[in-house]
Design a protein around this nucleic acid. Structure first.
Length: 439
RNA sequence: CGGGGCAUAGCGCAGUCUGGUAGCGCAUCUGGUUUGGGACCAGAGGGUCGCAAGUUCGAAUCUUGCUGCCCCGACCA
């Protein structure tokens, strides 16, 4: 994409409403625009990041055997009356009336709807296990939305729902999502640690929150340092096999949110192994048994010829929140530092003297070669001063900057800068292009 | 939902106390000089001062009501 033809409204000054760094940077780098409290438009650069996160989430869900669907944002109140949550949910649920005065709502989550889909079609245990997910906008009318998309009212979430014949099978489904989440967050370039979370009446280890450590995180967390070095399962992990050793490797190390914190256990750890930090919840996995299948009549016939209410779990990833969480965990004074996997473009090509025939020609050639090689390039072809170009490129945080100017071209050279480290290397044009193509 | 704060040009702000022609910086546009870390000079455009009512000869400024937004807390992906 040529900068001259794109829409990248960057801000030099920080709008005053933005308090935390991710929010400031998202506004300044032109990722989002606030439309109302907790409600945002996604501008081109932000949209690309969101799409990249979605892509990785989707790949890992698919790998783990989950199947994508798409449910609507607006739901009928009837289903929620069946589960009893229409009255329980409270003011967080945005209630709407249509022209026929039917009670509707903007979905804050989809357990009821997915359970309805399931019960409409599935009759036999032979069709299990089943895990359906979608990536869709949710609305929760938060009392106090804040920190930009970190706690918005409208947010993009991946939510998966598993259906199994019994608790043992549901545990396996839980483990599949647990492992998928480890891989997903790792690929997104963040360290998200699964932590024991408050599971309400169900008890046990039926739920984990995946938390990214960041100073501006909303919750206090406590963990064993060893959790940070626990290996991430490989891409060829066998989701049909026994995943309990992987899950156990993570869950046996101490890691808990404030609500679940057990001081005695934590302090039994050697002092240099204890980490007290703050974190951002980016995902949660939850086993809740027959909480919805029972009241909503989602049953299958088992091998015993008897109908069983299915055991369910739900698994969420805050896709839009992740954008903010990743920035919180990866930025510096100058701006965002995108992990390669989700960067809106991999390379920022900077033409130091737009309008100069020689530099224009070289830039165009490089742009074409990289683009043809499938590399996403944002080409800064604007006629601006060097300082402004560097500042913009640092702000939007593309992993690589390829700097092309008359000074270097005199020797047939360009400069390649790594955003994360600031390292610069002077290379021939070919060497630089090949380096980027080689990855 | 309790407490606090803010609302003036696209963005950041001054002016409000003490009523009297709406200002500054950045951004934008034009011309020129510049050109490797947010240039300089000259000129220009851009505002129902959040909305409504009131007080007054006169309201950004005083009064009342409303709305929007932000922060702290309680609550939550």
């Amino acid at each position: 994409m040529r900068l001259s033809r794109s829409f990248l409204p960057i801000l030099r000054e920080t709008p005053k409403e933005a308090e935390i760094v991710s929010h400031r940077l998202m506004l300044r780098a032109g990722l989002i625009r606030q439309q109302s409290a907790g409600i945002y438009s996604w501008l081109p650069l932000g949209k690309r990041v969101l799409a990249n996160i979605e892509r990785i989430v989707r790949e890992e869900q698919d790998r783990a055997g989950a199947i994508e669907v798409l449910m609507p944002t607006l739901q009928s109140a009837d289903l929620w009356k069946e589960s009893g949550r229409y009255d329980d949910y409270g003011k967080e649920m945005l209630r709407i009336e249509d022209r026929h005065e039917r009670a509707m709502l903007y979905g804050p989550t989809n357990e009821e709807m997915i359970t309805d889909i399931f019960r409409s079609y599935v009759r036999s245990y032979k069709e299990l296990p089943l895990n359906l997910y979608h990536i869709q906008w949710k609305f929760r009318d938060e009392v106090r939305p804040r920190f930009g998309v970190m706690r918005g009212r409208e947010f993009l979430m991946k939510d998966a729902y598993s259906f199994d014949i019994d608790e043992a099978a549901a545990r396996r489904a839980y483990n599949r999502m647990f492992v998928a989440y480890l891989r997903t967050f790792d690929r997104l370039g963040v360290k998200a640690i699964p932590m024991r979370a408050d599971s309400g009446p169900i008890g046990g280890d039926a739920t984990h929150e995946f938390i990214v450590l960041a100073a501006t995180g909303e919750s206090a967390v406590f963990l064993d340092k060893a959790a940070l070095d626990t290996p991430i399962p490989p891409a060829d992990v066998d989701f049909d096999g026994d995943l309990t050793p992987i899950v156990a490797a993570w869950t046996e190390k101490y890691a808990a949110t404030e609500e679940m914190h057990d001081k005695a256990v934590f302090e039994a750890l050697p002092e240099d192994q204890r980490i007290e930090a703050r974190g951002i919840e980016v995902g949660q996995v939850f086993y809740f048994g027959t909480k919805y299948s029972e009241p909503m009549g989602a049953k299958v016939t088992g091998p015993d010829g008897v109908e069983h209410a299915v055991h369910m779990g739900s698994y969420g990833i805050g896709v839009s929140r992740l954008v903010a969480a990743i920035i919180e965990a990866s930025h510096d004074e100058a701006g965002i530092i995108w992990p390669e996997s989700i960067a809106p473009y991999r390379v920022g090509l900077i033409n130091m003297k737009a309008g100069d025939d020689a530099t224009d020609t070289v830039c165009n050639a490089i742009y074409e070669r990289l683009t043809n090689a499938g590399i996403e390039v944002l080409y800064d072809d604007l006629d601006q001063r060097a300082g402004a170009k560097f500042a913009t490129m640092d702000l939007i945080g593309l992993p690589w900057q390829l700097i092309v100017g008359p000074r270097g071209l005199a020797n047939g050279e360009v400069e390649l800068k790594r955003r994360a480290t600031g390292e610069r290397e002077t290379l021939t044009i070919d060497a630089a292009v090949n380096r980027l193509i080689a990855g």
